[in-house]
Amino acid sequence: MIKKSIALILIAILFVAIFFTLANDLPFGDNRTTTGVSDKYIYHGVNDTGASNLVTAIVVNYRGFDTLGEVTVLFVAATGVGAVLYNMGRPAGKKRKKTEASLIVRTGSRILFPMMLLFGAYIFVHGHLTPGGGFQGGAVIATAFLFKYVSDTRYHIDHNKFTATESVVGMTFALVGIMGLLLTGYFLFNFLPNGSPGELLSAGIIPIIYVAIGIKVGAELTGILDNMMEVEQ
């Protein structure tokens, strides 16, 4: 009770402090695009990178290095979750009984699973053209596997294959960066032609990276799911 009230008071203080400090300084809905670097991204993004999706242009090309980092963060986090769950789940006794899914779910999953994979793949392959990208596509793929887990109690993934896939696509990303360095002197330089914006094969290295990210994120999230499932058994 005391703790709860302390928490509430602290949050209230924080809210009041932030709100009244910034109330006049953060005009809501103001057009701020004309300041800073966003100008360049907005007006030259398509020309510079060949990607019609501006967000992708920034995320994978202008600031591709951040994305490489974020992929690593996710990778490390997946491993970390595995480690924590592995250590926590060790003493038996918290076994939860799994209930078999109904026939409808099982049959539906069999039909929907490939479609979900395809949808995920579509999202990351078209990352440079349409909203979405590697992370989103990967998440969709992971959802497909989650679906599998839910519908089939005996289902589990082949760890080695997943690990190998994850590795290979991760290395691909890093390799693309290193190749950029070798070919042009800049790490992660877009050494492929930009092509004409709007086409599937355009925007240089972006599609390669996004495919890699998509597969990687899918595999990692599935790995996390798998870890959680295993513990509950």
């Binding site: 302390i6 602290l10 203080i13 402090a17 400090t21």
Partner: peptide, 21 residues
């Protein structure tokens, strides 16, 4: 850990009050 989180929030609150006023 709850106490530690209080410390963090309290510290931030203090800094912000200082910063703002």
């Amino acid at each position: 850990v709850q106490t530690y989180v209080y410390y963090v929030i309290g510290f931030l609150g203090m800094l912000i009050i200082l910063a703002g006023w």
